[in-house]
Design a protein around this nucleic acid. Structure first.
Lengths: 221, 221
DNA sequence: CATATTAGTGAACAGATGTTGACTTGACCG
DNA sequence: CGGTCAAGTCAACATCTGTTCACTAATATG
């Protein structure tokens, strides 16, 4: 008469470590999924996360001491994927024509591919706790510096000082971030929206690089 | 022997409407104050707001149907003050030298003067509900358009088409917003931080305007 | 002056929240 | 094989949440 024991623990396969890191991923993914909606991280509850991950609330503490810690992990892994993009781009030969347009397209594609991570960053960049904000700002600063060394290789920026390169890179980054945020909010039903955003970003970058090339020589005002 | 009745309702002066709008302000201010800390709007509870405003939770509904409505009021009044700044600036004669630097300083001063409002906007610009985000984006678009008409009066931009002016204005706005967000997070104990932020913004704007002036003539690539 | 409005009260509710402790049960290792 | 370790469970807790309802008392109105 005894029915087969309805075991709620039914994730069978894998060693102990594998199973642990799998539910850890489950928690991170559950949080990311929730954050793609209307909620912000600080309004996200531990219980919601564990529920979506298919785990009891108390199990959360086996993986993170607090929600804040989970948030920091999300920041870290978001920028880890971004570094992946940079490595990828650098390994390929640079296009000689339409370099700006191609870079914009590549970046925006990447953002949409990792939509949830970038949505999270966009929200927490200014909305999160101060430790989170500082962590994100630090990562962006790092990204800006790396981009600056890439910009130095452009012929028309050959004569620019490294301090000015930093400035220009910061302008480029803030422009591409703004475009990313628009792209994330673009309604998928309007297919013309994304190219328009890319167009605008491209033109902005052209203006910036144009100004940068004249910048030094005009230093005297 | 009867002590004077310890009336909890003790905001005496004013007509009924005055008192109503005073507690309404109290609610708005309480929310703003809370949001200057670590919380985000979506994690702000109705009870916290009413408690700080010195009013019982149920009284909230006499002023707003929901927290979301209070948030929209905050958006509205934040940008109302910003329009105030624009009117102010336009009524004064434009400085003929250091125009960019003076504009940057004026704006950043204004941001710090209305710190709480701008902190709120910074957080909710990407962290809030989609209706809030859209409202903020719309207001920024409006601001961008108005700035574009002002830019048109600059001698070196006289030949620029209105579509391009819009583009340039958007660049200027995104730069000044980025500077504002940095200024809001500047540690007050380091007095050198604010001028550095203003310096950076000034130089960025110079690059942009420089590029804009050459832009049209370079249209052929 | 009598009456009607209405901002604010106070208590109660059903539900959600973070954190705890003692427990099970399967994988690991000697 | 037998003991240890740890991921996950379960139940309980005190606290906070939004919303409701009937109420009070002061202002406004006719």
């Amino acid at each position: 008469m005894a029915a087969p024991p309805s075991d709620r623990r039914r994730k069978q396969p894998g060693s102990r470590d594998e199973r642990k890191s799998r539910t850890r991923r489950g928690l991170l993914d559950a949080a990311l999924a929730r954050l793609s909606g209307e909620q912000s991280f600080s309004s996200l509850s531990l219980r919601e996360v564990t529920k979506d991950a298919g785990v009891v609330p108390a199990a959360f503490y086996r993986h993170f001491p607090t929600m804040e810690a989970l948030g920091m992990s999300l920041v870290e892994e978001s920028f880890a994927t971004l570094r992946g993009l940079m490595r990828e781009v650098r390994s390929e030969p640079l296009p000689t024509t339409h370099l700006i347009r191609q870079s914009v397209d590549t970046f925006l594609d990447y953002v949409l591919e990792h939509e949830l991570h970038f949505r999270f960053i966009a929200k927490e960049r200014y909305g999160g706790s101060s430790t989170m904000r500082m962590a994100i700002r630090q990562e962006i600063r790092l990204f800006t510096s790396e981009l600056a060394t890439d910009l130095a290789r452009m012929p028309r920026l050959a004569t620019v000082s490294s301090a000015d390169l930093q400035l220009i890179s910061s302008l480029v980054v803030q422009t591409i971030i703004a475009a990313s945020e628009l792209a994330l909010d673009a309604r998928p039903e309007d297919a013309s929206e994304l190219p328009r955003i890319a167009d605008e970003a491209e033109r902005k970058l052209q203006i910036i690089l144009l100004g940068a090339a004249v910048w030094r020589s005009d230093q005297s005002r």
